[in-house]
Design a protein around this nucleic acid. Sequence first.
DNA 1: GTCTATAGGCCGATAGAC
DNA 2: GTCTATCGGCCTATAGAC
Lengths: 206, 206
Amino acid sequence: MSRIRAKNEEIIIRAASRVFAENGYAATKTAAIAELAELPKPNIYYYFGSKEKLYRAVLESVTEPLLVASAPFIEYRDPVMALTAYIKSKLMISKDYPYASKVFANEIMHGAPHLPEDIIARLSEQTRTLSAKLTDWMGQGLMAPVDAHHLLFAIWASTQTYADFNWQITMALGKEELDDQDFERAAQLITRLVIGGCEVQSLPTT
Amino acid sequence: MSRIRAKNEEIIIRAASRVFAENGYAATKTAAIAELAELPKPNIYYYFGSKEKLYRAVLESVTEPLLVASAPFIEYRDPVMALTAYIKSKLMISKDYPYASKVFANEIMHGAPHLPEDIIARLSEQTRTLSAKLTDWMGQGLMAPVDAHHLLFAIWASTQTYADFNWQITMALGKEELDDQDFERAAQLITRLVIGGCEVQSLPTT
DNA sequence: GTCTATAGGCCGATAGAC
DNA sequence: GTCTATCGGCCTATAGAC
């Protein structure tokens, strides 16, 4: 693959992520993507073949950051540190990749009709890993015995809402856009709910 | 307005809610709504004038249940009871009005381009009422001094996720659809996070 | 590889018969 | 008030010049 091709593909993907996020799949016109990418419309088709294929490419490019967010959960052994870092990491995804988050949210909300099987498999795998680790901590008495799945749903929802329902949040807070402090406050609150609500304990220093 | 008109309008709104929820505004074809409503397509136009106007009508019809969900918050004086009932009420909305919830979520996610001003005003008003009440409780030492807005965002997100991201939830739980017990478990967990995490107290029995 | 100019299909909307 | 039959515009996709 030529350098120019790689570069143009990236420019198109970037522009497409944003337009798909803002309008949804059906409502986005390839012309709008071309305009934002500052490229002629046929180039989109030259590189990606169809609107549908471009959308799938966006979906895949957008998966990576979302999957990587759970790294802290695996890295830290201490429950308090792991959960605190995980919540922070999920919130940073909402802050730094708002388009990725919205494209994904849209896709999920409509029943994931375009989501490739391998991505679904990776997400399922991740869900299993996370809930197994939570259940493990509960078994060790490091946190109250709550329903691991529902706890995950609550964490996912309350962190992703800062990207997906950004409009509602900024409206309620009466500001144009969220700043670092808002995300800091969100992190503190969500962490408090999880750690406090589930009585999560730190690993005893042996 | 004739009885037949009222009846047909309701049938159309009902069908439209579902189709808009499942596909989003742009992706829904008026023909699909007509088919689900078992009426000829021109009737849609006869009654509502345009796809856009029908969508607005759906949006308004869909608002009512969502706004009513906060009734418990006003009715109960006791913080523990009020929050417990509110969370339950929000979850029941997700269970009983999944289409309403999704249509709304879609609208908000794309920056509320069609949401009428008066609905926005009512939502803002409600946000103010709820956060004022929380702040009041904090002032009385009935709960820990947390950020009221962010607490509301967490409650909204983690209850609405059961309607909006239903696909993800059923996938993670490995079932076809959610039953009463799932919602019961969700209610218990979210209530625990809020009550426990924010150290919410019952009113002392004087 | 790039882009102008155009084809072609789908879908919102309506004319007009009943 | 109801519905069949059709129009017309918009937007995806491509032919073909450079």
